[in-house]
Computed example of a mutant assay.
Amino acid sequence: MSVCVIIEMEGAHDWPETFAFTIIPAEKRPTALQPNREAADQEAKRLAERNPGRRFVVLEAVAVGMQISVPTHVSIEGKTLISGTIPALMALGDADDKIPF
């Protein structure tokens, strides 16, 4: 599954910066998730057609950072006695279905 968002980039060079991050102004933030790349491409073209001179960028999600459960204590027989969590970065195709998109 490939989820995308579209951002209207006109005037991006004037967007405020905080630390090392550029802040997307509220009126430029995405308001919908596109279910796949094809739908996002079509929507970006539709937006460009209705808003001449403006640029619409398609951003595609490729990875997710999340906590995963791992065994921390295992018996001699190989049974998990205690588990803990660690942060992990996984390609979206490798992550389980708990991701909300």
Rank of each mutant, 00 (worst) to 15 (best):
M66T: 09
T85K: 15
A20F: 12
C4H: 04
I23C: 14
E43N: 10
A95Q: 03
E77K: 14
F21S: 14
A88C: 09
A91R: 14
A48S: 15
L33R: 07
I99M: 10
G53Y: 00
D41E: 14
N51L: 04
T85P: 04
I82M: 13
D41C: 03
E43M: 11
D94C: 11
P25A: 03
S83A: 14
I76E: 15
V62Q: 07
F101I: 01
L33G: 05
F56N: 08
S75P: 12
A12C: 11
D94V: 06
R54H: 08
L33W: 11
F56R: 07
I24Q: 05
P16H: 02
E60Y: 03
E38L: 05
I76Q: 15
E8C: 10
E8I: 00
E17Y: 03
G65Q: 13
S75E: 10
P71G: 06
N36S: 12
W15Y: 11
R50W: 00
D94T: 08
A44W: 02
P16L: 03
I23S: 13
M90Y: 01
I23W: 00
F56A: 11
D97L: 06
V5K: 12
L81F: 04
G11H: 04
P30K: 00
M66P: 02
G11M: 03
R29P: 10
V5M: 12
Q34H: 09
I82R: 15
L47S: 10
M1S: 15
M1T: 14
H73P: 00
V58E: 05
A63P: 00
A20E: 13
V57M: 13
A95I: 01
F19I: 01
L59M: 08
M90W: 01
V74S: 12
L47W: 02
A32N: 13
A32M: 14
T80D: 08
R46H: 05
S75K: 08
F101M: 02
F56E: 09
D41S: 05
D96Y: 03
E60V: 10
D94H: 10
G53T: 03
S2I: 09
